[in-house]
């Protein structure tokens, strides 16, 4: 797996799987970002703004901290 550029971790891949294998394209369209940006968020290459993070959590109907976690010790950098 590629190195993470951010300390913000997420469970988007798992949550997409639990939501009937929701595609990145479908989630990206609901949030209003490109599929490539969603891929970067999911892969830890980009930490989204609070607004986008809340929108992603809202799509899965989960609280923000169930979707995103902050790792104080960077494992990839």
């Amino acid at each position: 797996m590629a190195k993470s550029k951010t300390r913000v971790r997420n469970r988007i891949r798992t949550l997409r799987f639990e939501s009937g294998e929701m595609t990145q394209q479908h989630l990206a369209a609901q949030v209003g970002v490109s599929r490539q940006t969603l891929n970067a968020i999911e892969g830890g290459k980009y930490a989204p703004s609070l607004e986008v993070a809340f929108q992603i959590a809202r799509v899965f109907d989960r609280p923000l901290e169930e979707v995103f976690q902050y790792d104080p010790v960077a494992s990839g950098s």
């Binding site: 970002v33 490109s34 490539q36 940006t37």
Partner: peptide
């Protein structure tokens, strides 16, 4: 083509 987003 997709509109620019915050990452762009």
């Amino acid at each position: 083509p997709e509109p620019r987003d915050e990452r762009d």
